[in-house]
Structures are given as structure tokens and as C-alpha cells.
Nucleic acid binder design. Structure first.
Lengths: 167, 167
DNA sequence: TAGATAACGAAACGGATCGTTCCGTTACTG
DNA sequence: CAGTAACGGAACGATCCGTTTCGTTATCTA
């Protein structure tokens, strides 16, 4: 349904109709639209492995390419956008997104950065800033539905995010 | 109303009640919720001047600090979050956001980057990538309601976005 | 095998919002 | 003073929310 009509066509009523299930059944299993969306996303997410090499910039380019391909090739891009929209009107959903969903999804990428720290390529105290840059970059393109047009920016952006801090 | 209850409490019905106006009157002036939100944001936006010095990193830190202060100190942070959420369920709203609202709001910041290009500090072909990094960084923190906690990341992030490309 | 338990679908609830239509009033305009 | 246009208010049908009720099915236990 998200693939067909996006967030606008996604409602608990519509889900229960389509599933041939009663609404109470849906609410028995997921307390929220956001709760359902997060499980849909997690269930659909192909395992995008992120094994650090010794080149952070290349690791980030590879991971971003895989992620964008996943977002474009499945309904997951739509799902993610719906989830982020939902979090803007439901504080509980925002808390779940920030404190549970995102940390889980970010484990691999964070690993790329900590590996670079271990190699001495980037300072440990900059990991959060660089992670935020990485996340935000992806969010901007997916939220504005510009994943195709934005591909050209990936290498330069990742080079900057991965840049060693001089001095 | 956005300041009081956020996006959840914002509906055309509620707006017309609060304004003592009929709904048709609201729809006569703004064709969309997004349309109204964009005008609210634009009307509220204090002029945050962004005059380039000769240090892009410092310019970006200053502008980000001003922007986050504006987002936190007025209902505008809420307004912006509502606008972005609205754009996820209304393709027309997304197009307006992407093609009209954002370019207008970004004029000043883009000026900071093009000034750096003119000085030879950064290559012209990387402006889009760096702008996306800048935008995304801000979006991530405002959309996750972490503007206070994220302030510590600003200097490092801006240093990376403004970094000269070696070689 | 018989009874208890739990999940289920279906329907309906009150409340809210959407975007639109109709109507009678107000306030400018010429 | 007549005409016009924007207005407020009320109501429309449609959709969705989250919850309650009810009768049925399926599983587990004794």
C-alpha cells in the first residue's frame, strides 16, 4: 500500500480492510501507526552489510549506494518517509524512532566510523558530528524524493564526511 | 497553535475556529495546509543575514547558530517540522517545498558557498554536495527534536563541510 | 472427549478532520 | 443607492481514529 499510494494511502482502516482483519486485531499487535511502520521497515530491510575496510570514504560511498538502492528498489523509501512524517505529529513515535529504531539501524554505520577512529584516521570526539552529517545527507535526499538526482553528490559528500582532521 | 500542540493540533478546522473565520475563507486564501504553513514560516522568519566573510566554516557556524536559535525561540521549528511532514503525504506540497520554498530559504546560505568558490577555497562542482550536507545536518537535528543536545556537534560538522578539498 | 481460554472478524461507536456547497449578511464600489 | 464580492456559519458526505461489543473459531487443558 505504501508503494502504491505512499503515506497518504496508509491508514489503519485501509490496512485492516486490505488484510481482511478487524481493526482491533491490528491494534492488538501494534499500538501505533509508527509501531507498525517500524516493523514493516525492519522486516523488509535486506541485510546491508557494512564491513569496514581501511578506507572510510569508500565504505561510506558503498553503504550509501546500497541504502539508496534499497530505498528505491523496495517500498522502504516510502516507509521511511512515512515513519519520519508520523514522528512529527506523535511525540511517542518520535521517542521510539530516536531511542530505539535509529540506534539499531545505525549500528553498522557507526561501526565504520569507530573502525576509522581505531585506525587513527578520525578523532573519536567527532564521530557524532560525522554521523549526523551522514544521516542528514541521506534524509535530505529521501525526504525530498531526489534520490536519483542526488547520486552524483555522494562521492564528494562522503569524502568530506570521512576527511581526516588536520593538525 | 503549532507552538502549543505541534503538528498534531494543527488542522484547518482548528485554525478557522481559532480565527473566528469560516473554513471556506481559509481555503480561499490558501489551497493547502502546506501552502498555509509555508506562509506562516516565511512571515515569521526573522531576517537571518548571512554575509560571507573570508572563512566559510565560521560563516556556517554563525548561520547555523542563528537558525537553531530561531527554530527554538519561535514556533518556527514546529512549523518547519509540520511542513516537512505534510510534504510526505502530499506530492504537490513536496514539489512546492522543493522547487519554491527551499530555494528561497537557501539563497543566503548558497551565497556563503559561492563566495568560498570565488575565493578558490572550495571547488564549484562540490557546492551541491556541501549544501546537501549542510541542509541534512540541520534537518536531522530539528526533525528528531534534538536541537539543544546537538549544538556541540556544530563546529566540527561545519569544519568538515567547509573543508578545502586537497590535491 | 469435553470444557476453558484466547485470539479473531465484523460491525458499530463518538469524535475529529477533510474539502466542498449553500445561504444569509456585511462591507466596500461605482 | 444599487451591485458586487468576500465573509461567517452551518451543513454536507467521506474518511479515519481508537475503542467497545458480540458471536465465532481454534487451540490448549483436564
Amino acid at each position: 500500500m505504501l508503494a502504491e499510494e505512499g503515506y497518504a494511502g496508509f491508514s489503519i482502516d485501509a490496512v485492516s480492510r486490505r488484510a481482511g482483519a478487524g481493526k482491533p486485531t491490528i491494534y492488538r499487535w501494534w499500538k501505533n501507526r509508527a509501531d507498525l511502520l517500524m516493523e514493516v521497515y525492519a522486516a523488509e530491510k535486506a541485510i546491508i552489510t557494512a564491513v569496514p575496510t581501511d578506507d572510510l570514504a569508500r565504505d561510506l560511498v558503498d553503504h550509501t549506494t546500497a541504502l539508496w538502492g534499497f530505498w528505491c528498489g523496495t517500498p522502504s523509501g516510502r516507509t521511511f518517509r512515512a515513519l519520519l512524517a508520523e514522528a512529527q505529529s506523535d511525540p511517542e513515535a518520535l521517542a521510539a524512532l530516536r531511542d530505539k529504531f535509529l540506534p539499531e539501524r545505525l549500528r553498522d554505520v557507526r561501526g565504520l566510523f569507530t573502525a576509522a577512529v581505531a585506525r587513527g584516521d578520525i578523532p573519536a570526539e567527532e564521530v557524532e558530528a560525522r554521523l549526523a552529517l551522514y544521516l542528514g545527507f541521506n534524509w535530505f535526499y529521501v525526504l525530498t524524493d531526489q534520490l536519483e538526482a542526488g547520486q552524483a553528490s555522494i562521492p564528494a559528500a562522503m569524502r568530506l564526511i570521512a576527511a581526516p582532521t588536520p593538525r
